[in-house]
Design a protein around this nucleic acid. Structure first.
Lengths: 128, 128
DNA sequence: TTGCAACTACGAACCACTTCGTATATATTT
DNA sequence: AAATATATACGAAGTGGTTCGTAGTTGCAA
């Protein structure tokens, strides 16, 4: 599965969180979230290309086509993460984590979640 | 400070780890690390552009110019990380961390380092 | 039924990045 | 001194992504 570009990713995020949607719905959501005004046909074109690439599925039975994300959220994020950590941290994932936590605005809840995962990784049998 | 592109980043990584270097040295290091053969003039051009952008400093006193990274490693990585986490995880840094750790190949040493940082974040006064 | 609104299709321009060829200058070797 | 190797400079093309205008179609409302 090919990695989405930034523009494609912003559309996938809409479909991941809100479920299947029309071009208009996606475009409005996109414009609601960002300051930049994005033209309707721009979103349309992008979603058509995504359909060609197989990133989304397109239901053409109604006049307004309904698009559904095909690319899985976790798989896609994993793929992008790998590329990013290779390019920016030379593949060292721990460096990435340290840098991400180092910004200092993680909440106690965030830290708790992370600690819990670490505990699981250290003692797999406790949670198998 | 502007964010470097992927190509620029690969050059910065060489300068960060090895210190100031000539175009030839950087190009050889680049080719040693990757399978793709990168032309000498390609590296040259890229480094010239980086000099124009202020990402690197250029010492032209010798015939072979010597380049030094200007963009700081940590700052640059922070900037790229921010963009990435915004685009891919909607700005949720904790999601990024969980995903990064979830791949499952972190060593006990990695986990220890991360735990230590978390401890510091939870009890700042112990390390102030 | 006539006109207006909303939809899809698609070409084309634009932009940033990358890559390399070629020209030219400078050092080094024979 | 001539030939060779190595540098920089720079134009130009290729690529991928984004953006939008315009044309054509379909539904809906007056």
């Amino acid at each position: 599965m090919m990695s989405p570009t930034e523009g494609e990713l912003s559309i996938l995020r809409v479909l991941w969180t809100g479920g299947p949607a029309t071009v208009r719905a996606v475009n409005e959501r996109l414009n609601a979230d960002s300051d930049r005004e994005i033209g309707y046909t721009t979103t349309l074109k992008l979603m058509q290309l995504m359909s060609d690439k197989g990133l989304v599925n397109r239901d053409t039975s109604a006049r307004s086509h309904v698009y559904t994300a095909v690319a899985g959220r976790e798989r896609t994020q994993q793929g992008l993460l790998r590329r990013f950590v290779d390019a920016t941290f030379g593949g060292d994932r721990t460096q990435l984590v340290l840098r991400a936590l180092g910004e200092g605005d993680a909440t106690p809840e965030d830290l708790a979640k992370i600690k819990q995962l670490i505990a699981q990784l250290e003692n797999p049998e406790d949670h198998a």
